[in-house]
Structure formats: structure tokens, C-alpha cells
Design a protein around this nucleic acid. Structure first.
Lengths: 159, 159
DNA sequence: TATTGTTATACTCTATAACTATA
DNA sequence: TATAGTTATAGAGTATAACAATA
């Protein structure tokens, strides 16, 4: 970052000083989240899978026949919000809504072969970009970060 | 694509297993962010200052006479998005838009005494709730977490 | 020409409530 | 009564584009 030319008294930018905000986990979390999310979208391309759609596909591929209710719970969103996501994935031909013999209310989500392949490719792409974005952190630091974040998540889920 | 160990039983809930998602910083970041943000809102009360309004007030109190453009840049949002935030803070009587002698385009944001007091109270409240939410983490772990998040943020800002 | 603050507008994400069909 | 999926709807939060006043 090049210095601003000749800051006068009025124009001097004091805001590089540490502010109260920087001491909050919440503020730093938000700022980091915005950056990582933007990188994610750039990685897959602006009009490809959004983070939440990728997440949904990931769980469907790894846990085939999962119900929408369970999927919503695992993603931490409402059932109603999941409909559009599943619609999108179905529209792309990445999964199908299958009926379940025992309970006709449930629609089991089953990945198609196309969906599995798309997921495998997206997974590799996102992994590579996240690795590049976090290149400043050692492997150990990345593990520590994920571990600390997970403890916050688990704490929040059990409350 | 890793093969699923046991694809058959549809009733069993396999989803407590570690999924690909858990290995991503982005996913853990998002989930932790949602929890901390919800705690923030509960801390101040549902119809009190939203996180971003609190952040704006914080910077105005600590850097009086900051311009809206600079404030927006420091919050990482667009100028246009800041207008509603400043409107809200002005409506609450927490700050005033003051003219600047040298440049009549700029509206310097100056906190009122009421704004300073409200900020001091909110600051204490939010600090206490964040401390309680993160009670599982040691002081050292909290410092580590913030430091790692800040490195992601700084990396993102310089790109 | 460039910058500051502003408005208009649209899009994404999310939640709530109510509906249906099942159980 | 309760649950699964769905629809309608509304509210944040954010971005883009254009504008007037000023530099």
C-alpha cells in the first residue's frame, strides 16, 4: 500500500490505529468470512454453485438418501429455505427427489452420477483456492483455526 | 470420490461423521459467524443496534470527524450502504453530520455525548456476552483465533 | 475529471407463517 | 397431533448505477 501524498492535519488518517472492533472475535469473524466467501465464489465462477448450494450438494453426495429436513438441520437453515437450493440442484441434474417406501412424506435426496462428478470437480477447485488464499498460514495454523471455529460452532449448536 | 462405507440402511443417521465441509475454513467460518452474530444481537436486544450499526458507531466515537467515505472503506462496505446506517445513528441522536470548512462535499461524523455513552454501554455489554460465549476458549486461544482471522482479513484487503 | 454523499433499484440470504399430504 | 415438503411473503444486508454539489 503506497502512502497517501502529504497528509495534512485535516486529512490524516488515524484509523490505522487499533480500534475496539479489532478486539472482538465477532468483527474479525465477519471480515474474514466475507473474504473467504468472495474467494469461494471466484473459485467456482460467479454463476456457478453458491457456497450454500455447494454445501448442500456435498452432504447429499456423502449421505445419499438424506431427507430435506435432515439436510436443512445439518446446514443450519430452515426447511423452507432449502427448497430453492434443492430445486437448483435438481434443475442442474445433480440430484433427484426419490420417494421412500416406508414414509410417503419424505423425499430422499439422491445424487446423480453427474452430480457426483460435478461435486468432485468443485471440491478440488475450492480446496485449491482455499489453500492458495490461506497460503500465509502454516498447515498447523490452519488446523488450529478450524479447530477453534468448530468449538464455537459446537457450543452454539448445543445451546 | 471416497466410497461410502455402508450405503444401505435408510433410517440410520450417518451425518454425524466428519464430512468434507468440516475441513474447509470457509464452512467453519460461516457457521461460527452465524452463532457469534446471533449472540451479539441477543446481547444488545433484538431491536437495538445491529452489528454493523454498532461497528459504525464504534469508529465514529474513536475517530471523530471521520468522513462517510472513509468510514465505509473501513467497514468494508459501499458508500451508498452507509447512508442508512448513519441515518439511523443520527435519528437516535448518537452523532451529527457536520460540515467541514475546507471541503463542502464532506460531512464529518461527530459523536454526541449521548452517542458516546450509548457506545460505552453497548461496548461493555457486547464484551461481556462475547466473553461468556467463548468461555470454553482460554485467553490464549481467543488471542490466537483473533490473530489468525486478522491475517486472513489483511491478506484479503491487500489483494 | 474526480470525489462525496445520496437515491433508486435489484438481488441474495434468511426467517415466519400458513398450507397439503401424509403419519 | 405431529412431521415433511412447499409456498408466499417480508426483512436484512449488500451492490450497482446514476445524480447533484463540489473539488
Amino acid at each position: 500500500m503506497p502512502a497517501q501524498p502529504r497528509p495534512s492535519d485535516e486529512e490524516r488518517d488515524d484509523t490505522h490505529a487499533i480500534s475496539d472492533l479489532e478486539q472482538f472475535v465477532g468483527y474479525n469473524l465477519k471480515r474474514a468470512y466475507v473474504i473467504v466467501q468472495a474467494d469461494f465464489r471466484n473459485a467456482l465462477g460467479q454463476d456457478s454453485l453458491a457456497p450454500r448450494v455447494f454445501s448442500a450438494l456435498s452432504l447429499v453426495v456423502q449421505f445419499p438418501h438424506i431427507s430435506q429436513s435432515k439436510l436443512a438441520r445439518h446446514l443450519g437453515i430452515e426447511r423452507s429455505g432449502l427448497v430453492a437450493i434443492v430445486d437448483e440442484l435438481e434443475g442442474l441434474g445433480y440430484l433427484s427427489r426419490d420417494t421412500v417406501p416406508g414414509d410417503r412424506r419424505i423425499q430422499a435426496l439422491v445424487p446423480t452420477e453427474k452430480g457426483r462428478q460435478a461435486y468432485a470437480e468443485a471440491l478440488a477447485t475450492v480446496r485449491a483456492h482455499e489453500k492458495a488464499l490461506l497460503a500465509d498460514l502454516t498447515k498447523e495454523e490452519r488446523r488450529t483455526l478450524i479447530s477453534l471455529l468448530r468449538r464455537i460452532r459446537v457450543k452454539g449448536e448445543t445451546e
